[in-house]
């Protein structure tokens, strides 16, 4: 029984040490684990102008325009927004008002040239008729 107790204490101490190490590593890695930056975060980063970066946010409604294969739209995080240029095929879930992640570079003129555009889905799942009722009653996005 005492040996078992000894092993149990050893296990507890070991697990605590591992957990502490994990917390330290994760907090040290910080935002390098982040997949994308919103427009305000991106504009605040000094390295954003020279590196390939990922810009994420909502496609501002009413800003999507197409000329041939070139698509232009504005990505916003509510505080700032960035105009994006992209020549290529957009994923199916690309919609106005929906999340999007664009990979590319900032231009000196203060825009963003995307090389790939991914659609970001949110955590809401519902049938089309429920969505229509919510929209009609003006409850759309009210919970957010």
């Amino acid at each position: 029984m005492t040996r078992r107790r000894q092993r149990l204490i050893l296990l507890g101490v070991g697990m605590a040490a591992v957990a502490l190490a994990a917390v330290l590593v994760i907090s040290a890695l910080g935002d390098s684990l982040t997949f994308f930056y919103g427009p305000s975060d991106l504009l605040a980063r000094p390295d954003a102008a020279t590196h390939r970066v990922r810009l994420g946010g909502l496609v501002e409604p009413g800003t999507v325009s197409r000329e041939g294969t070139m698509v232009r739209f504005t990505v916003t995080d509510g505080k700032s927004s960035l105009p994006v240029r992209y020549a290529g095929v957009l994923p199916d879930l690309f919609r106005e008002g929906q999340g999007v992640v664009a990979e590319g570079r900032l231009t000196p003129e203060g825009g963003f040239v995307a090389e790939t555009v991914l659609a970001k889905h949110d955590e809401k799942y519902m049938p089309p008729d429920v969505a229509a009722v919510l929209k009609k009653n003006g409850e759309w996005r009210a919970q957010q």
């Binding site: 982040t34 970001k120 955590e123």
Partner: peptide
């Protein structure tokens, strides 16, 4: 991970505070 960092993966729909964000039919 979906709460701590920006991810492309969506956040939790079922096991989240405030109840599931998913229609009962689904």
């Amino acid at each position: 991970s979906v709460d701590w960092w920006n991810t492309l993966h969506q956040p939790a729909s079922v096991m989240k505070l405030g109840g599931p964000a998913i229609d009962p039919s689904m």
